[in-house]
Write a protein that binds this DNA or RNA. Structure first.
Length: 257
DNA sequence: AACGGAACCTGAAAGC
DNA sequence: TGCTTTCAGGTTCCGT
């Protein structure tokens, strides 16, 4: 679920909830999600929360906690006395609040590391922090694959890639090397556009996910196969590449130009 | 080397 | 109504 915008929302919330106050108590459930013994965080104070791509780096006095939200991960704030939530994997209790990690599908990870985590170090430029260099959108692979490669650009997932490709009017199966400079520039622009747009929609402190609480699909083409193209009204189509679905308009995003 | 598929999980929605 | 199938916004491993 979470792509760059949702993780950015989580980072902002964690900054407000964690920075400055010592952790009084840590409780974890054993599962694949909690990959380290987090008890060492007791008594330590968070000094900074950073996001790069879909990863969070949460700095404490003598160690660093890395958090990836997988498909369904979420950080929430509750009263310390509130009962355990469903799929709650970790609870950090501070003075007057408890900060909890919830993840039904359990694809997320909480990992302690002294310095860096290889997964963090391997990340490419972050579109929000570093901007998007169109020259990076190259390779023999399909452009959709390139967009999802976290070492090329960090933070783009299936939704943001789908939206950016539509905005730039580029067919997802075209080879990245085949794009013109103008198309690469349009795609870089589309990435910025969809990230900012999604971020603006994520107004609350907690992440919201499509389909959750019956919320309406806020995206332009993602999840809208069969509906009319917002630009030309032709029915949107869907294709699958390496198991990932892309919704697109066959007229506005032609395979050949 | 590059790419596709399976695996890791649970739950909501669609299909029957 | 209820059981079954399909699908989901991520990543990694494994085989071809």
């Amino acid at each position: 679920m979470p792509e760059l915008p949702e993780v950015e929302v989580a980072a902002r919330a964690l900054r407000r909830w964690l920075v400055g106050a010592p952790i009084a108590r840590v409780r974890t459930k054993r599962s694949n999600v909690v990959a380290s013994r987090l008890g060492t965080l007791r008594g330590q104070t968070c000094s900074a929360v950073e996001r790069r791509g879909k990863w969070l780096r949460i700095s404490f006095d003598t160690t660093t906690l890395f958090s990836h939200l997988g498909m369904t991960g979420k950080w929430v704030e509750r009263a310390p006395t509130d009962r355990a939530l469903a799929h709650e994997h970790a609870v950090f209790t501070l003075a007057e609040r408890s900060v909890r990690y919830v993840d039904p599908r359990a694809f997320g990870r909480l990992v302690l590391a002294k310095r860096e985590l290889p997964a963090w170090t391997a990340l490419g430029p972050d579109p929000l922090l570093d901007g998007v260099d169109p020259a990076r959108l190259r390779g023999r692979r399909a452009i959709k694959d390139v967009l999802l490669d976290q070492s090329v650009l960090a933070g783009i997932g299936n939704i943001q890639a789908t939206e950016a490709l539509f905005h730039a009017r580029i067919h997802p199966e075209r080879a990245a090397n085949e794009l013109s400079d103008a198309e690469r520039a349009a795609l870089a622009d589309g990435i910025g556009w969809t990230l900012q747009r999604t971020l603006a929609l994520e107004d609350g402190t907690e992440i919201t996910y499509l389909g959750e609480k019956g919320s309406e699909n806020p995206f332009v083409v993602y999840g809208r196969a069969g509906e009319p193209c917002p630009s030309c009204r032709r029915a949107l189509e869907r294709i699958v590449q390496a198991g990932r679905t892309t919704t697109f308009c066959a007229r506005c995003q032609p395979r050949r130009r």
